Simulated assay, not measured.
Amino acid sequence: MPGPASGPVEEALAALPLVDHHCHGARTADLGPDAFASLLTEGRARPGSDVSPFDTPAGVAVRRHCAPLLDLPRHTPAADYTARRAELGWREVNRRFLTAAGVEVFCVDTGFAPHPVTSPAQLADASGGAAHEVVRLEGVAESVAAAGVGAGEYASAFRAAADSAVRRPGVVAVKSVAAYRTGFALAPERPAGSEVTEAARHWLTRGGRLTDPVLVRHLLWTAVDLGLPLQLHTGFGDDDIRLHRADPALLTDWLHLIRGTIPVLLLHCWPYQRQAAYLTAVFEEVYLDVGLALHHAGPSRSRAILEEALEITPFRKLLYSSDAYGVAEFHHLGALCFRQGLAALLQERVDADELSLPDALRIAAWTGRDNARRLYGLPAAGSSPPRPFCD
């Protein structure tokens, strides 16, 4: 948990059990220095280069804020940090950081696993919290294609597979990475069946990842039909994304067409948090978070990112996520950056008499926990436990 608080809002956020509404698993292997460093960046680490992932805001934040949890001094050198990590072993490292994050519920995207990582159940066990699953729909579609299906049967086969996936115990949402595959400058209308069949014919012939714009549109409309909250990656990501196509404002026409259907969660958003805030202000079903950017910017800039996100966003529309993947340090660091950044901006508004203290405390609880509980149907504290996730 974060260090000593300096005001009532800081104290409340330091003690608040968070809901991390979008994250991934942590590595289940001991990592050498190069493997660990490669997970500190969204870019490509180049061993032997003089550009080290440790020499970034995220790398500096890890050495400052994560080192003490490994019994190391603040600002410990990178070599000492990775050596201590290896000495403790991955299970103990994960346990320490996941526990320190102070997260009571993780909503875990299980569709991205280029390395062996913890399952939702393992994440919950290591943290002492609970975990639920978020189903990535592109993975479902690609599994349908890999299993063998005719072009004319693709649409119904995909819908059946998606229906089956979301009925698994512990599933609370679906997700799309359309931002990576096509970007959001798509025709907003639901594609006709004949269009889907023709696009499927081309895709099934050539194989590979789902990148056809018609089939991505079909996937998004299938998500609407499924009825669960839909998470959409927007903005910042690895070098597979074309950032100018990941601006959530490009979704405006589609959002008009799906009014009154499902909650749409705009993930991460940076540097488009202001565009995302506009969408939350004008579309009842749209919500946002600024996860991923927080731990990559570090605690010193988290407040500024959150402040821009909250310029016009309704307070019931902002959620917390870490989008942590690979290293459990990011589960902890994301939570720390969120707590410190939000506490600083809310406390300043209280001190300036722009917010009452009760309002600030409500906003802190809504954003860190209660908005996600409401959207995903998670039980409130003190009620019956969430449905167990089954591996």
Rank of each mutant, 00 (worst) to 15 (best):
P2W: 00
P4D: 08
P4I: 03
S6F: 13
E10I: 05
E10L: 03
E10H: 14
L13G: 02
L13T: 02
A14L: 01
C23S: 09
H24C: 04
G25W: 00
R27Y: 03
R27D: 09
A29P: 00
P33Q: 05
P33H: 07
E42Q: 11
R46W: 03
S49N: 12
F54P: 00
R64K: 12
A67R: 05
L72F: 06
T76Q: 00
A78W: 06
A83Q: 07
A83D: 09
A86Y: 01
L88I: 10
N94W: 08
R96T: 00
A100S: 09
V103P: 02
V105L: 12
C107G: 10
A126V: 11
S127V: 09
H132Q: 15
H132V: 14
E133R: 15
V134N: 05
R136S: 08
G139P: 06
S143T: 13
A147M: 07
A151T: 04
A151S: 12
S156G: 03
S156A: 15
A157M: 10
T205K: 14
T211Q: 14
D212L: 11
V216M: 12
R217Q: 13
H218G: 01
W221V: 05
D225A: 14
Q231V: 14
L232T: 10
T234I: 11
G235P: 07
G235D: 01
D240T: 11
D240M: 12
I241K: 06
L250M: 12
L251A: 09
T252M: 07
H256P: 00
L257F: 05
I258S: 02
L265M: 15
L267P: 07
A277K: 04
V282I: 15
V282G: 11
F283N: 10
F283Y: 15
V286M: 07
V286Q: 04
A293V: 13
H295R: 01
H296Y: 15
G298E: 02
S300E: 15
R301C: 09
R301F: 11
A304L: 13
L306T: 01
E308Y: 02
I312N: 01
P314T: 08
L319D: 01
S321N: 11
S322P: 06
S322Y: 07
S322N: 06
F330H: 07
H331G: 08
H332G: 02
F338R: 10
Q340M: 08
G341V: 00
A343N: 00
Q347L: 00
V350F: 12
D351K: 12
D353Q: 13
L355F: 02
P358E: 08
L361D: 01
A364E: 02
W366S: 12
T367C: 15
G368W: 00
G368R: 06
R373T: 11
G377C: 11
A380M: 13
G382R: 09
P388M: 07
F389T: 10
